[in-house]
Design a protein around this nucleic acid. Sequence first.
DNA 1: ATTCCATCTTGATTTATATCAAATATGGGG
DNA 2: CCCCATATTTGATATAAATCAAGATGGAAT
Lengths: 244, 244
Amino acid sequence: MRPEDIPVVRNLPLFSDMDDRRFEELVEAALLQTFPPQVDLIREGDPADFLYVLVEGAVEMYASHNGRETTMAVIEPTSAFILAAVLNDVVCLMSARTFLPSRLMMIPNEHIRRCFSEDTTFAGAVAAELSKSYRQLVKQHKEIKLRFAGERLANYLLRQSQARGDPTQFTLPAGKGTIAALLGMTPENLSRAFGALSAHGVRVRGGNIHIDDAKRLADFAKPTPLIDAVEEIYERRGVKSIGP
Amino acid sequence: MRPEDIPVVRNLPLFSDMDDRRFEELVEAALLQTFPPQVDLIREGDPADFLYVLVEGAVEMYASHNGRETTMAVIEPTSAFILAAVLNDVVCLMSARTFLPSRLMMIPNEHIRRCFSEDTTFAGAVAAELSKSYRQLVKQHKEIKLRFAGERLANYLLRQSQARGDPTQFTLPAGKGTIAALLGMTPENLSRAFGALSAHGVRVRGGNIHIDDAKRLADFAKPTPLIDAVEEIYERRGVKSIGP
DNA sequence: ATTCCATCTTGATTTATATCAAATATGGGG
DNA sequence: CCCCATATTTGATATAAATCAAGATGGAAT
């Protein structure tokens, strides 16, 4: 395991408040593995044997049913996934595969669950992480039910341009096929949607997106914080005392 | 506040392991209110001032954007809602309205958050509840992305027939317009989808559904536990000790 | 460079679903 | 019990999106 990876994982909100001893134990028990692209890490329906932490690379969460397949999320460093399944010790609802060469820390199920039941601080951090993920997913669900494909793309581009440094320029975090599935459309449709957005100042070359004028794009996209805001992790602070 | 309501709330997994003193305090601080149908309890974007527990009646969670509106969930007794928003002390992502005369316990934000930070047991129960809700929503999201409208309805009927006592007969928990929005379709389309399901042994009279043969319907619906299983709440037990 | 393969694009068409417009039920007050 | 308002159904049509079928593009390996 690369020693320089440890502090990065340590600094995740999930682990940052945990005491050193306990974190050491987790690291001790964990595997650090490197995978090439296109490796299946998890298959939906399998038991959640590990909590995964993506340290480097990129992972796609996806789901299949009846011959159809869709992307549920694109995960980038540094973040944990399948926490809910691990915690409840149940089967995964989503599959996961690398789509870049990736380095992952894999912490065995029992260790996570033991920490959760023994360590108050960790339990709190878990709740914070879960509520973040939950609200993230509420937004995704609202988006797919309330917006058309073209609007979803436009807002996705605005969110990405915010999340990455430069608001005028960025690179898609995955291939267009994956992005299409993430946004609930076919690749053909994504292509056409990009075409339509050129009328709103979006220029595409390969995976590179240029936005002439975010305001103009927003006029079309109509973003709202109730769908598009990034969920901040809840910092567990004291609550002001109640009553007189 | 009706004294007979208290034990019901007490028995929710969220509160059942909490110690008596603390629960008393929550009850003390809580409001118990009765509302007629069609009352807006929460508007998305508003701060989450209370954790709501539905004791009797029925509540619709919904979301609006750009003149469109959709149903996110139909809540029945006894269950809590907007936990994630309360915990993080942020705005609600969904609106809520009664659609039956309803009795609700409303526990002030600060009390919930104080319990969460002071009471390990409660923090654990919160995490369990959140992971349940999260996985529930993952399933909803998979369903809408991977199934057609008719399949969604068929599987919804199968789930309902399981959840309610009689597998051959049950009543819809809400009007068809609401069910349609919940399943991501228009009322017109729901009507036609019901029509199509008559070929698979589904008989409808008003809100009353009769399923001739669940197996036959399942042949069409192709249910899978990875979308259709009901999430059980995680019972927080000890984890077997690790290593030699 | 050139080939090969995968990805992406474009156009034609089909399918799923929404919308519009009536007609028909349904159910709760008067 | 009747009437009204609302919900649901049905039919006709429009729109969004998927599918099918070629092409074009762009890398990576040779």
